[in-house]
C-alpha cells in the first residue's frame, strides 16, 4: 500500500481508457440513440399526420356521400316531374286527337244528314208533282213550275 511509480503507470492507463471512451465508445452510442429518438419522433409525427388525414378523409367522404344523396333525390324529383309532364302531354294529345275525331265524325254526320235531306226534298217534290198530276189528271210542266217546286222544296 505504498505510493510508488505504479501511480504514473495507472494515471497513463486511466488517460488511455478515457481517450478510448471519448473516441470509440461515446460517439457511436450517442449517434445510435439520437438517430433512434429522431426516428421515433418522426414516426409519432407521421402517425399524428395520418390520424389528421383520416379525419379529413372521413369528413370528405361524408360530404361527398351527402352530395350524392342530394343529387340522387334531385334526380328522382326531376324525373317524377318529368313523368307527370309526359303523362299530361300524352293526355292532352289524346284529348285533342279524340276531339278532332269527334269533330270529323260530326261533320260527316252533318254532311250525311244534309245529303239525305236534299234527297228527301227532291223525292217529296217529285211525289208532290206526281200527286198533283194525278189530281189534275194532266202533266205538270216541270219547267213551267220550277219556281213553285223550288219554293215547295224550301218549305219542306
Amino acid at each position: 500500500m505504498n505510493i510508488n511509480a505504479t501511480l504514473f503507470v495507472q494515471a497513463l492507463s486511466f488517460a488511455f481508457l478515457i481517450w478510448f471512451a471519448v473516441k470509440f465508445i461515446w460517439p457511436p452510442l450517442t449517434r445510435a440513440i439520437e438517430e433512434r429518438n429522431k426516428r421515433i419522433a418522426d414516426g409519432l409525427a407521421a402517425a399524428e399526420k395520418g390520424k389528421a388525414a383520416l379525419v379529413e378523409a372521413e369528413r370528405k367522404g361524408e360530404a361527398s356521400m351527402k352530395e350524392a344523396r342530394d343529387r340522387a333525390s334531385g334526380v328522382l324529383t326531376e324525373s317524377e316531374k318529368r313523368g307527370t309532364q309526359i303523362v299530361d302531354e300524352a293526355r292532352q294529345a289524346a284529348k285533342a286527337e279524340a276531339d278532332r275525331i269527334v269533330a270529323g265524325a260530326r261533320e260527316q254526320i252533318a254532311a250525311e244528314v244534309a245529303k239525305a235531306r236534299t234527297e228527301l226534298r227532291e223525292q217529296v217534290a217529285r211525289l208532290a208533282v206526281a200527286g198533283a198530276e194525278k189530281i189534275l189528271q194532266r202533266e205538270v210542266d216541270a219547267r213551267a213550275h220550277t219556281e213553285m217546286l223550288s219554293k215547295l222544296k224550301a218549305e219542306l
Partner: peptide, 28 residues
Amino acid sequence: GFWTLNLDTIIMSWVLGLVGLGGIWLVA
C-alpha cells in the same frame, strides 16, 4: 523504494479496463 511497479495492480487493471471498455466498444 519509490521506483517499483506493482505488477499485479497494473496487469489486473489493464485486463479489467480492456475487458470492460472493450466489451462496451464491441457492442457500441
